[in-house]
Computed example of a mutant assay.
Amino acid sequence: MSGGGRKTACVTGGNGYIASALIKMLLNKGYTVKTTVRDPDDMEKNSHFKDLHALGPLEIFRADLGSDGSFDEAVAGCDYAFLVAAPMDLNAENPEKDVVEAAVRGTLNVMKSCVRAGSVKRVILTSSIAAVSLRPLQGEGHVLDEESWSDVEFLRAYAKQTRGWAYPVSKVLLEKEASKFALDNGISLVTVCPVTTLGKAPATKAHASIPMIVSLLSGDEALIQTLQHSEKANGSTPMVHIDDLCRAEIFVAEEESASGRYICCSLNTTVLQLAGFLAANYPQYNVKIDRVGDIGGDQKPPRVCVSSAKLIREGFEYKYKTLEEVYGDVVDYARAMGILQA
């Protein structure tokens, strides 16, 4: 504890989409927050910190995932460390080195700093549904939970044909290495695997999921194809609102009995269902439902269901459960970000 009973949390990658929203929620809950960025002087990426500073005590530190010891100052005196920052270069020249190895090394670098700090009660690692759902699945009616893992060998076998294969591989391997490190060093570690995350965040740049999830409105053909490819690879288009994700991260941090992995997903849907919803609710964008499937086929359930039953069973409750609620403010946010025309 620090600052008259306030809990202190470190959030890595504070200019990121999820991290910025998490910082805002922690400050609103009365936490003292320390966050890290690679370049604190980059005002284009860091301008949102001005508004966040007004909410409560926030310190910003320079740190680099590739540099051992650079997180020591940021995690010193912290009760919780939220590991959100991660390399995500889909066009890396050497994906094995620049994405996979960098992600594992960066995660362990922060965890080593947590060991040295001696004050960190729990590390909360943000992974991804990409570490859960990418595997060969035949037929329909599959339910994936925390025991499910993406198939690393399967992903590597198709590396030449599949753009971005290193990202899910990095998530699987960093989860497993982090778990081993935590066990060897007596650290309490919980991992959160969020699905496609929607909603407004303080960060000045929207996460890649936002332009993709509004692509049916923007008419961006390349992103519509990415959305369809994602559903084909995952078997569904699972979603969660960013507020629910941040609430879940704080829940598993504070809940003493929490352990292991937690999938964070409030809704399993399909691109066709999404298209039908958007066409009905945003007629001004002229969504072409037949572009993504047969009209009337939107009643068909997803081939794969991503289960968040563990999180719910342990006492967490989602606030945004329907497509209307989850999609909520994403259109206004995308307009504000310049992704969508008003």
Rank of each mutant, 00 (worst) to 15 (best):
residue 138 Q to N: 15
residue 268 N to P: 03
residue 110 V to K: 02
residue 189 L to I: 10
residue 228 Q to N: 09
residue 61 F to K: 00
residue 108 L to K: 05
residue 276 G to C: 13
residue 41 D to I: 05
residue 300 K to D: 09
residue 52 L to P: 00
residue 122 R to H: 10
residue 257 S to D: 15
residue 61 F to R: 02
residue 321 K to R: 14
residue 7 K to T: 07
residue 189 L to V: 09
residue 281 N to W: 14
residue 319 K to A: 08
residue 91 N to T: 14
residue 48 H to N: 09
residue 126 T to M: 14
residue 120 V to K: 02
residue 256 E to R: 08
residue 337 M to W: 03
residue 37 V to D: 00
residue 324 E to W: 10
residue 137 L to W: 14
residue 21 A to F: 06
residue 104 V to N: 07
residue 180 K to Q: 12
residue 155 L to Q: 04
residue 166 A to T: 15
residue 189 L to F: 07
residue 340 L to Q: 01
residue 312 I to W: 04
residue 268 N to K: 04
residue 254 E to Q: 06
residue 295 I to N: 09
residue 247 R to H: 11
residue 38 R to F: 05
residue 335 R to I: 15
residue 105 R to H: 07
residue 126 T to R: 11
residue 292 V to R: 03
residue 87 P to H: 14
residue 201 A to S: 14
residue 140 E to W: 09
residue 225 Q to V: 14
residue 55 L to H: 04
residue 39 D to Q: 00
residue 141 G to P: 09
residue 151 D to Y: 11
residue 12 T to V: 08
residue 223 L to D: 13
residue 130 A to D: 13
residue 341 Q to K: 08
residue 236 S to D: 13
residue 206 A to L: 08
residue 288 K to R: 11
residue 274 L to R: 07
residue 4 G to T: 15
residue 172 V to F: 11
residue 106 G to D: 09
residue 311 L to S: 06
residue 214 V to W: 07
residue 290 D to S: 12
residue 213 I to T: 13
residue 99 V to F: 10
residue 285 Y to E: 12
residue 58 L to V: 11
residue 238 P to V: 15
residue 141 G to I: 15
residue 320 Y to E: 04
residue 276 G to Q: 06
residue 237 T to R: 04
residue 160 K to S: 15
residue 340 L to H: 00
residue 278 L to K: 11
residue 233 A to I: 13
residue 42 D to S: 10
residue 150 S to W: 01
residue 269 T to F: 06
residue 151 D to L: 10
residue 208 A to M: 09
residue 118 G to R: 04
residue 44 E to A: 09
residue 242 I to G: 10
residue 221 E to D: 15
residue 20 S to K: 07
residue 71 F to S: 01
residue 30 G to P: 13
residue 213 I to V: 12
residue 167 Y to P: 05
residue 319 K to L: 08
residue 249 E to H: 07
residue 268 N to Q: 05
residue 225 Q to K: 10
residue 333 Y to M: 06
residue 138 Q to E: 15
residue 123 V to W: 02
residue 36 T to V: 03
residue 201 A to M: 12
residue 285 Y to G: 10
residue 183 L to T: 15
residue 289 I to S: 08
residue 37 V to C: 01
residue 248 A to N: 00
residue 179 S to Y: 06
residue 134 L to G: 08
residue 10 C to R: 00
residue 342 A to P: 07
residue 84 V to M: 06
residue 28 N to I: 12
residue 306 V to N: 00
residue 340 L to C: 02
residue 331 V to W: 08
residue 127 S to V: 08
residue 24 K to N: 12
residue 121 K to S: 13
residue 90 L to Y: 14
residue 263 I to V: 14
residue 205 K to M: 10
residue 174 L to Q: 13
residue 194 P to T: 03
residue 120 V to E: 00
residue 246 C to M: 02
residue 197 T to S: 04
residue 98 D to W: 10
residue 263 I to Y: 03
residue 35 T to W: 03
residue 67 S to L: 06
residue 25 M to E: 09
residue 107 T to L: 07
